[in-house]
Design a protein around this nucleic acid. Structure first.
Lengths: 352, 352
DNA sequence: GTGAAAGCGCTAACAA
DNA sequence: TTGTTAGCGCTTTCAC
């Protein structure tokens, strides 16, 4: 208890099994060239003594650190935590990433980094020097930051870029945005809608554009006008409300609206209600991002599920598979449309 | 880039500043016995080279690991993540704990542990051996687990027990449950209620009892009956619904109900609505735990805020303050009553 | 106040 | 297939 040292070290195991340190090390790391009998004997000693390698020592001797670092935007994350609006990005990241790491004996550690900061490099560089992670996961809006990519590449650390299609160092993963937007639009078209509105997200995020593209594709394919009912938003409630007001004031107002995130959908719902429109009877609504709030509105919102957990899980897998080469093309993890109560056939035509 | 090594080590700094490794180490660790001029010169080299100590090496040489480990219940945490109901315990833990750690150059790492498992000790023992954290934070229901406390004490690792009043190794912190329950009850009494219902939580959690005690104290103090309108629940929605049904079926039904968590409050709200009672006109409702969902009901719920972030922040502070002795008595971080739309004077009497 | 030596627990490289 | 040696980057002795 005095000065804290490892209780059971590789030495104890070696001694107990009557072999050299190196052989024990081989067993720990599942390396070849150990006779089964020997391996078994050593494993028995390990179990008996309850030995667990110190990751600090492993890292020190030039091996792996068993740490995966995930980077999130500081400002946005803290704002979400403080707001307590039920945004669960971090939770889903943990659900997918942390659990997958655990399966491989890894830990996921995450840091908040300021993108709009000129010393991102220093900040992140310090973390890397201190932790020496075996892999890094970048999330928007860091995913396409060339400074970060350059730094990571320089250090030779494999990294994943979530929500990116960019090429260059590391590998990219997307969350089915284009396809999901296409499907959400199709869902409305199949229901009989033809005047379908779309509220875009902030163009600081590439996925805003992808979502828009999916909408345009579905509309065009169905011979519908993909421009008239398109309104700009920036992911904020206020921008969503403004966009919805504009859309609903049109002579030829849309009978359905797809909004690029939950806050804007909420805003559209409130705006419609205030305008005396019932959802979904007078207006159908599709929400992007299946966040908790979609379950608490009245009616519950039909939403596009963003596969956050699955994507992080996949990113970790790719990072840890040292044999496979990093994917060249962006890996697309498909999203899913969750149909709830906010979508129905348009009122104007027989709904039966 | 080949075999990954530290880019800038203490050696480089020592060489650059023209001093011994030891002196640099003293500066890094803010130790005495370094002349100011010397310190400045070394600091300049550190800044110039962008040196950051490797925590692996620091830990190796018997110093600190700069890691704080937080332990949460595996089953409950994963269930919450999967449910996506907006439970934000982990987020608030991170907000308070992780940010406070960062202030001190520490990282917070967290693990999910199975309490209802006979090898908790082995599981946690392995994590401790691998990570060698400088401190551990236990959350319910681990906080009062004697196996865990024993293990930690044996290793000489300081630890905090959140949501506990138990004595023994480590130190305890509570989140103002008794006082908050008292205040919530007072709030209703002040509003003019006298038949106030209370739905208890699972007795696997000590805080259920504390909350109940606060209610009893306020009722008794006001000369009201603290027994008649008390119903048992276990934190689940189903149990809350059953309890609410029982309460509302009474001839002398309560005009207000306090439920020991958000799910049970939701259940009470739904039950009341189904019974044709308006909230708050016919029934006032107070929610324990100011989780996101309290903002999404109609009306929004008057709720007791559980100071999760503040408590974790405090726990980290206490863990890292190596000079101060660990607190003897439980540290109570006060909660707060957030008044929203679900409480009002009872209908029976003039409400003006 | 500063420096030199030893060693933490482990693995890479080499030798046997 | 196994063992030996050296060293990772840092902090602890202890000497000056």
């Amino acid at each position: 208890m005095a000065r804290r040292r490892q209780a059971v070290t590789i030495k104890h195991v070696a001694q107990d099994a009557g072999v050299s340190l190196q052989t024990v090390s081989r067993v720990i790391n599942n390396e070849p060239n150990v006779r089964p009998a020997m391996k078994e004997r050593i494993q028995a000693s390990i179990d008996k003594l309850g030995y667990v390698p110190s990751i600090a020592a492993q890292r020190m001797s030039g091996s792996r650190s068993y740490l995966i670092l995930a980077i999130n935007d500081r400002e946005r994350t803290i704002a979400d935590w403080r707001a307590r609006q039920g945004s669960d990005w971090i939770d889903q990241m943990l659900l997918g990433g942390m659990l997958k790491c655990a399966e491989h004996g890894y830990r996921m550690i995450f840091e908040l980094v300021d993108t709009h900061n000129d010393h991102v490099e220093r900040e992140l560089g310090a973390t890397i020097a201190a932790l020496q992670p075996d892999g890094v996961i970048l999330t928007p809006p860091h995913s396409d930051n060339p400074l970060i990519a350059g730094l990571l590449a320089k250090h030779g650390i494999p990294f994943a870029r979530i929500g990116s299609r960019g090429t260059g160092a590391g590998f990219a993963l997307t969350m089915g945005d284009e396809t999901s937007a296409y499907e959400a639009t199709r869902h409305l078209i199949d229901l009989g809608h033809s005047r379908i509105g779309f509220i875009t997200g902030s163009d600081e995020y590439s996925l805003s554009e992808w979502r828009h593209q999916g909408y345009v594709r579905a509309m065009t394919e169905a011979g519908l006008d993909p421009q008239t009912w398109c309104a700009e938003g920036d992911f904020s409630y206020a921008s969503g409300a403004a966009a919805a007001r504009r859309l609903l004031a049109m002579a030829d107002r849309p009978t359905a609206i797809i909004a690029s995130n939950d806050q804007m959908t909420l805003a559209a719902l409130d705006t419609a209600t205030q305008a005396g429109l019932a959802v979904p009877a007078d207006l159908s609504l599709v929400c992007f991002d299946n966040t908790p709030v979609t379950r608490f509105t009245n009616p519950q919102l039909t939403a596009v599920d963003q596969p956050i957990a699955a994507t992080f899980s996949r990113a970790v897998e790719l990072l840890l598979d040292r044999d496979a080469a990093a994917p060249k093309a962006p890996v697309d993890v498909p999203g899913e449309l969750i149909v709830r109560g906010s979508t129905a056939p348009p009122a104007a035509r027989p709904s039966g």
